[in-house]
Nucleic acid binder design. Structure first.
Length: 577
RNA sequence: GCGCUUGUAGCUCAACUGGAUAGAGCGCCUGACUUCGGAUCAGGAGGUUCUGGGUUCGACUCCUAGCAGGCGCACCA
């Protein structure tokens, strides 16, 4: 039940009718016309710009058109109390209180669907996120993208789309060789007392490798660790397995669950890279050429080589990109193209990639490749998750990857908890750097938006508890003449925005709108709740422990929306705090 | 040098794919409640939306030229 959509349709109907009667002229597309939430100061429920949009075409003032349209609209709808026309030409609609009673009735009868856009075409999305190298645990840097991807997936599936969540495992290439060697040296350290070559910059120094080594030793007692060349491949698999176990447990503690883990190694071994190159050659998307050194940089060591290049410039990239190294092996990009061919072949409507800020330069070549592979534009949407600045004791907190002393997801969750991490990481638009202040996140007060919203839910629960009712029990409307007060309608208006919030979050893939919305709703609720402190009549429960059923339903509606929203964000809504 | 991205109150950020007098929180200054449940609420001060042009009924939003920060720029994945 999206009242803005409903009224937009009514407005369309009215102007089409007026046009049929030759009262006005309307354009072919009605796209610019909207039905929106008016600013609070106007004491109005829905506003539309229709008169201003039509003004030019009709060569009439917006005012004149607005009067015509609004009087027609009002005549057709008994729930409208008043329509006013305001300055530049906005039409503001104000409903009778009974509108809101009906509104509440409608959404309580279709609880599960409220917020879901049932009219929208159901699409099939693939969301790829995290995809961190399987060389160690997830750290804070991975966290934001992980949560962003997860919540984008949640909101899309809430809005009735089909979503597959995927993790691409880069279990192939040089990094994996170095990683395997690192594990090998840790094993030798344990078994043969040889010191780990800590000064070798190619190796992974982190202590977690000691655990990996111990696990591998104890579960492979028949293995001989004397010669690396002999066990290389097996050890590589075992090490990756260790990493993935750890990564999956990290994801689990963040509340994240991928549907697929796709292995780069499998893609390579299945000859998908060769196949995709063949495909690109057949379609003339590749050629042998040279890449020029970037200008303005110190490029003394730059060597121009002829190599196989993908014509990404045909698709808007600023350079063509290398598919083959000089030694004849494929580049990382080549296998990534193969992976994306694999995605394209699985027939999704949209592919979404959540990338870290350090991959911004990678976006164009990826989307170029997907354009080429699918023959469709804008099939791949890349969302960048910007850096997180960690702050502790009012000071920035630096991690050093080289030393291996970075804050892991486990550290983070242990210190601040899953819910606070998710809520705060999401509280800002993904393309803005985020300050993650440990002290503020741990704070249990209104300074912490998570608790502020949860407290709202807990307060509602307490009302139900106090009258011995269950939040999940079925409540029926009894009094259809009941009218909500202005303060309550204020909250109901916010409730009516929920479907709009969901739609926008999906459309723009911006889930930060949800915490923002929930905070706002909670704020209005707290404000209302406090009225009861001074004025006992404004309390939900009367002196003789009674509550009007419509007020109970009112509370139920609010708690439902908070619950839905918090579910999408992936955090709990405790009934007691 | 090129590409992407960000620039909004002292600070951290919103602003519904172009709408109305640009909104919250923190901090600061007043006040309410001493709890239906301890995390709550009301009010005040605070703005040239980085700058200059343009597009139009209307611009934080779009275009353009700059300025400033961030990220990236071989065959590392």
């Amino acid at each position: 039940m999206n009242i803005y959509q409903t009224y937009l349709e009514k407005i369309h109907k009215v102007i089409i009718e007026l046009a049929n009667n030759n009262k006005i002229i309307i354009p072919e597309s009605l796209a610019g016309i909207n039905a929106e939430i008016p600013p609070e100061k106007f004491d109005s429920d829905i506003s539309t710009n229709v008169a201003m949009v039509l003004s030019k075409l009709n060569k009439k003032s917006p005012d004149e058109l607005a009067k015509l349209i609004s009087s027609t609209l009002k005549d057709s709808d008994p729930l409208i109390e008043d329509i006013s026309v305001i300055k530049p030409g906005f039409i503001n609609i104000k409903f009778k209180p009974v509108f809101w009673t009906k509104f509440v009735e409608e959404i309580i009868n279709n609880q599960k669907e409220f917020g879901v856009n049932l009219k929208e075409e159901k699409l099939n999305y693939l969301v790829e996120f995290v995809s961190a190298n399987p060389t160690g645990p997830l750290h804070v840097g991975h966290c934001r993208g992980a949560i962003l991807g997860d919540v984008i997936s949640n909101v899309l599936s809430f809005n009735n789309h089909k979503v597959t969540k995927e993790y691409y495992v880069n279990d192939y290439g040089n990094q994996i060789i170095n990683f395997t060697k690192s594990v090998y040296f840790r094993i030798r350290e344990i078994k043969f007392n040889e010191p780990f070559p800590i000064d070798n910059p190619d190796l992974y120094p982190g202590d977690y490798l000691i655990d990996f080594a111990n696990n591998i030793i104890s579960s492979n007692s028949d293995m001989n660790f004397e010669k690396f060349e002999v066990i290389n491949e097996k050890l590589s698999n075992l090490s990756i397995e260790q990493s993935l176990l750890l990564i999956k447990s990290n994801l689990k503690s963040l509340g994240i669950n991928h549907d697929n883990f796709v292995s780069e190694k499998d893609i390579v071994l299945n000859k998908e890279v060769e196949n995709v190159i063949k495909f690109l050659e057949e379609n003339k998307f590749v050629y042998k050429g040279k890449i020029k050194a970037p200008t303005g940089e110190d490029n003394k060591n730059w060597v121009e080589r002829e190599q196989l290049l993908f014509k990404s410039t045909d698709f808007g990239d600023d350079k063509d990109r290398a598919l083959q190294k000089s030694d004849g092996t494929w580049t990382y990009f080549a296998s990534d193209v193969a992976y994306h061919k694999n995605k394209v072949d699985r027939k999704f409507d949209f592919l979404i990639n959540i990338l870290g800020a350090d991959h911004t330069g990678y976006v164009k070549r990826l989307s170029s490749s997907v354009d080429a592979l699918s023959g469709t534009k804008n099939k791949l949407i890349c969302k960048i998750s910007q850096l997180v600045k960690l702050i502790k004791d009012n000071k920035p907190f630096k991690m050093s990857k080289r030393k291996g002393d970075y804050i892991t997801v486990d550290d983070l969750i242990e210190e601040v908890g899953k819910d606070a991490t998710r809520f705060i990481m999401l509280n800002r638009s993904g393309d803005v750097e985020l300050d993650f202040d440990f002290d503020a996140v741990k704070e249990k007060s209104k300074d912490n938006p998570l608790y502020y919203v949860q407290y709202c839910y807990a307060r509602i629960s307490s009302v139900f508890r106090n009258i011995d009712k269950d939040l999940n029990s079925n409540i029926k409307i009894k009094d259809f003449d009941f009218e909500y007060s202005n303060e309550e309608i204020k909250i109901l208006k916010k409730i009516s925005e929920w479907p709009k919030c969901v739609d926008l979050s999906c459309l723009k893939l911006e889930p930060h709108r949800i915490p923002t919305y929930l905070y706002d709703l909670a704020s209005k609720f707290h404000s209302y709740w406090n009225l009861g402190k001074q004025n006992p009549e404004k309390r939900f429960i009367s002196n003789n422990n009674q509550i009007h059923p419509d007020k109970l339903i009112f509370l139920k509606v609010i708690s439902n929306v908070i619950k839905s929203g918090m579910n999408i964000v992936g955090v709990d809504t405790p009934e007691k705090m």
